[in-house]
């Protein structure tokens, strides 16, 4: 989600809420004997408001689970999640008087900080990475389908190679048995052997595991050098095939980039979501027990 000018009303509303809360908190903190406490009237108000904001932020998950619910637009929910979730931190700090000395309260504050900070990291990533992905991964596909697409790319490359060089020993069984769709081009045996070695030794392992560290074709520069040497070595009649193979390698690299960016885009959720749930559950327990004691 891009944080653009459409967020301005939320930003203003959040600043107003924060300003009002701070204006209420300061005289309360300065004039309360014994200092601000979560159990005082205003402390409870801040606690309830903070927890309500957290609950609302948590409901985004439920809203996503049931996208057909017609309760507000997804964008509105997301903005509410972002801004009210962020506001929950100062509200809870006001609630506890900036102190968290008990075991459960210390855990809750640590969780809240982690959740808010991970959320902010996520918001920044969600702001910048999609645009970066559009620029750097023009051949973007659905992330979950990447393995499936890769399988097809592998198949496509094998077909291209088979169409020119015939069945390649050492390639997978499908390729070996594949029938060439076009007449084979006359190529010197030595060059053919060299290409075969390169395809089986370098390209196919790259197609099989494009993210493997050390794969030469992962590097665009190295890839360009390899394909340039192939062009010098092989007759110009099959340069179109070399270009296609090069484009498959490029697509594989883009899928690599997409996978990496996707992990950044969604990896922070592995921290944010589970800890948010724990925070809500333990926060509920804290509310009940604090009212008792």
């Amino acid at each position: 989600m891009r944080i653009d000018t459409t967020h301005r009303p939320w930003l203003i509303a959040s600043l107003v809420i924060l300003g009002i809360s701070a204006a209420m908190y300061m005289p309360y903190a300065m004039t309360t004997p014994g200092g601000p406490k979560g159990g005082s009237f205003l402390g409870l108000v801040f606690g309830i408001v903070g927890y309500a904001f957290m609950l609302f932020a948590g409901l985004l998950g439920a809203r996503k689970k049931v996208p057909i619910w017609r309760i507000g637009r997804a964008k509105t929910w997301m903005r509410g999640h972002l801004w009210l979730g962020l506001l929950s931190l100062p509200m809870i700090l006001f609630h506890g008087g900036f102190a968290w000395r008990g075991p459960l309260t210390a855990v809750l504050m640590a969780l809240l900080f982690i959740v808010v900070i991970s959320g902010l990291v996520g918001a920044v990533l969600q702001h910048y990475l999609p645009r970066l992905m559009t620029q750097r991964v023009p051949l973007e596909t659905i992330y979950e389908e990447i393995p499936h697409v890769r399988e097809q790319l592998r198949e496509e490359a094998d077909n291209l190679v088979t169409s020119v060089f015939g069945a390649l020993d050492g390639a997978n069984a499908d390729v070996d048995t594949m029938v060439a769709v076009v007449p084979l081009v006359e190529i010197e045996q030595e060059e053919k052997e060299h290409f075969r070695e390169l395809y089986i030794g370098t390209m196919r392992p790259f197609f099989a595991n494009p993210e493997a560290p050390g794969a030469e074709l992962r590097e665009p520069q190295r890839s360009a050098e390899i394909f340039a040497s192939l062009r010098r070595m092989l007759p110009s009649s099959i340069h179109t095939v070399i270009t296609d193979l090069e484009s498959i390698c490029e697509e594989e690299r883009q899928l690599n980039r997409q996978a990496r960016m996707y992990r950044w885009l969604h990896g922070w959720l592995l921290v944010h979501v589970p800890l948010s749930i724990v925070l809500l559950v333990l926060g509920g327990v804290h509310a009940v027990m604090a009212l008792r004691y």
Binding site: G38, A99, R101, G102, P103, L104, T105, H286, M289, A290, Y293
Partner: peptide, 8 residues
Amino acid sequence: PAVYSSGP
């Protein structure tokens, strides 16, 4: 119940 204590 000391886990619910608000501090030392």
